[in-house]
């Protein structure tokens, strides 16, 4: 990375443009990349492998974190939540984008995209607030449904077993609209001639979707899954606020990030907090690497 910020080497490049201009364009970005990407990562690794007196500690921080009674449940929570969320995200976002794109009425299509997107403005704490209300049978507009399913109180609705689904619903509610806009944009990018030719050859909407639109969307679907996976592993604000609002019925160490936070700021154990950070980082990288390798993600390069 530092190589890219250093000048020189420009003359080696072909043609009339020296590499120096390219370096000039990226230099400020590289500075930020180092300061807020690289350095904290190194910090995390450093703290994960040292003890309180800054001596090399091997894997003991990782062992402390992994044997903590809160650790395995947190891993399970996050994994289940991710599974539900990612599957519903891929199926429903792509499905809805295709449905919207095929809509005959342009005005309705535009209005729907906007309305689907609106919850995106409530990302973070705001969506948690709204869903606290939606999940409280006493005030919820779907309170009758909650009661009909035998969930009469807020505490019953947010029982620990329900949380992966509830958190997935909240995340989908906030995030899906943005991805629908992205997928729709990608669909718009498909040449009308190609679609027309397919139609003349007798392809129905289903075949067009399956053989033309989906393959061309693949890159964006992969992209969505990677980014959503990354975002999903850092689950924090929703369970945090749910636990605040329920006096701990929804546990305060529900997700890995909450656990990492508590290690650092409640248990005063920065090493184990960093160990969890490093683990999340490694998981993210492995999954990302798999996707990148298998999807030809850098096709555009």
């Amino acid at each position: 990375m530092s190589a890219s910020s250093s000048a020189g080497g420009g003359r080696v490049r072909r043609l009339s443009w020296p590499g120096r201009a390219g370096h000039g364009f990226v230099a400020p970005y590289v500075v930020l990349l180092i300061a807020f990407g690289l350095v904290p990562t190194i910090y995390a690794i450093y703290f994960a492998f040292t003890d309180a007196s800054e001596r090399f500690a091997g894997l003991s921080n990782f062992a402390t974190a992994a044997t903590d009674f809160r650790f395995l449940p947190a891993v399970g929570h996050v994994a289940l939540y991710l599974l539900i969320w990612l599957v519903s995200l891929v199926v429903l976002v792509v499905g809805l984008a295709l449905l919207l794109h095929g809509l005959a009425a342009r005005a309705a299509d535009r209005a729907l995209r906007f309305l689907y997107y609106i919850p995106g403005a409530l990302a973070g704490a705001a969506s948690a607030m709204v869903w606290l209300f939606m999940l409280d049978p006493t005030v919820s507009p779907v309170g009758f449904l909650l009661r009909a399913s035998g969930l009469g109180t807020f505490g019953q609705v947010i029982a620990p077993g329900h949380l992966p689904i509830l958190l997935a619903v909240i995340a989908f509610w906030t995030g899906a609209g943005g991805w629908i806009v992205v997928m729709y944009g990608a669909l718009n990018n498909i040449s009308a001639d190609v679609l027309e030719a397919a139609r003349i050859d007798g392809a129905g909407p289903w075949q067009i979707a399956r053989h033309i639109q989906l393959p061309l969307l693949r890159k964006w679907i992969v992209y969505m899954v990677i980014l959503s996976f990354a975002a999903g592993t850092q689950l924090f604000v929703e369970p945090q606020l749910l636990s605040q609002a329920s006096n701990g019925v929804a546990g305060r160490d529900y997700s890995l990030n909450q656990l990492s936070y508590d290690f650092a700021f409640q248990n005063d154990n920065v090493g184990s907090a960093a160990a969890i950070s490093v683990e999340l980082l490694v998981v993210g990288l492995v999954v990302a690497g798999l996707f990148v390798a298998r999807s030809g993600f850098f096709d555009a390069d």
């Binding site: 350095v39 910090y43 995390a44 990354a230 975002a231 924090f236 936070y261 950070s277």
Partner: peptide, 14 residues
Amino acid sequence: LMPNATLVVPLFLE
């Protein structure tokens, strides 16, 4: 792709 929240604690230290 790196979940940026995993860097919040190290970022705090930095």
